[in-house]
């Protein structure tokens, strides 16, 4: 009797243990399958990233040289392999800087309004439509800028400012969003302490809230810049193209890196009457395009990295 019960209970224990440790095989299979699928999803996402970065690196690296970075394309044509992208880098930096100058005050003040003052229907509407604005297609922003300046300056005007306005439409909501998040992180105790010392609200915001969150704000702005610096479509319809250096966004056409890359790609092969030589390379345009793409992607990655690092190194460890 006792032995059998003992045996039975031993069996039961074994069974329970088996159930507990091994679950049932079907559940374990499902769990394992899903684990593989989920790891797989991540791997799948890395394939295009790696392939893309590798393609740009390997195709563009051969074109990078000091001349390529410091010369413009003025008087360069056909298969001439001299010349470079300085005018495009300059145009990209000037237009993006101008867009930043327009966007940051508006975006930051809107974020301050939302965090420090905003309540009621207006604040809800602003929050909602800022979110909606992040989804405006970039080509529509370009069309808007063209439409606006057509009414002001007449048709056919192409200046850097129009591109900067188009980029601002895309950039402001991003700035508002990220600045809002950062301002919300500032603990209320700091504000209260400041009020208790008799500091007026505006001074509290400027001296306490903004100072505490400056690292986060910098990160947000850098990421917003990185977001718009590679925009092509709005610049394609607003800024025109040139092959000379132009630093003045209020006068004359400008070239930008993404537009340069696109236009070089569309130029196709050059004719070389004497065949390929040191002064005439048939596929120079596409090489230029990849070179510009590489420089652009490096700028974007540096901005992204700088944003993350600023936040990591300089943000106050409050808790």
């Amino acid at each position: 009797m006792t032995t059998t019960t003992a045996a039975a209970s031993a069996d039961a224990t074994e069974l329970t243990r088996a159930l507990l440790t091994a679950a049932d095989p079907r559940r374990r299979r499902v769990d394992r399958t899903m684990r593989i699928l989920i790891w797989g999803a991540f791997a799948v996402a890395m394939v295009p990233l790696v392939s893309l970065v590798w393609t740009v690196l390997s195709s563009g690296f051969g074109r990078i040289s000091l001349d390529f970075l410091t010369l413009s394309m003025r008087n360069i044509f056909g298969g001439d392999p001299s010349g470079g992208i300085y005018h495009a880098i300059a145009g990209t930096l000037v237009i993006t800087a101008l867009a930043t100058v327009i966007s940051v005050p508006i975006g930051l003040l809107t974020a301050i309004y939302l965090v420090e003052y905003g309540r009621g229907a207006l604040a809800r509407a602003v929050t909602f439509f800022v979110d909606v604005m992040t989804g405006i297609p970039s080509i529509v922003a370009g069309l808007f800028a063209v439409a606006l300046f057509t009414l002001i300056l007449g048709p056919g005007v192409r200046i850097g400012l129009i591109g900067a306005v188009a980029l601002s439409v895309l950039m402001i909501p991003v700035v508002v969003r990220s600045c809002e998040e950062m301002l919300k992180l500032v603990p209320n105790e700091l504000r209260e302490a400041s009020y208790a010392l008799g500091v007026p609200k505006w001074l509290t915001i400027v001296k306490v809230v903004l100072r505490t969150s400056v690292a986060g704000l910098t990160t947000g702005i850098l990421l917003a810049v990185a977001r718009v610096i590679g925009e092509t479509a709005p610049l394609l319809v607003t800024v025109g193209v040139t092959d000379s250096i132009n630093f003045d966004p209020f006068e004359g056409r400008m070239m930008t890196l993404p537009v340069f890359a696109y236009r070089q790609y569309s130029q196709g092969l050059a004719t070389c009457p004497g065949g390929e030589s040191a002064t005439c390379v048939p596929d120079i345009a596409i090489q230029n395009g990849w070179g510009a793409a590489l420089v652009l992607i490096v700028i974007v990655l540096v901005l992204n990295l700088a944003g993350r690092l600023v936040n990591r190194w300089f943000s106050p460890k409050l808790r």
Binding site: V56, Y262, A293
Partner: peptide, 21 residues
Amino acid sequence: YLVDLLAAVPSVIYGLWGIFV
């Protein structure tokens, strides 16, 4: 961050990559 980098790649580069690769 790595996944976020995909969002940072300019669309014109996606175009080039889409055609050639």
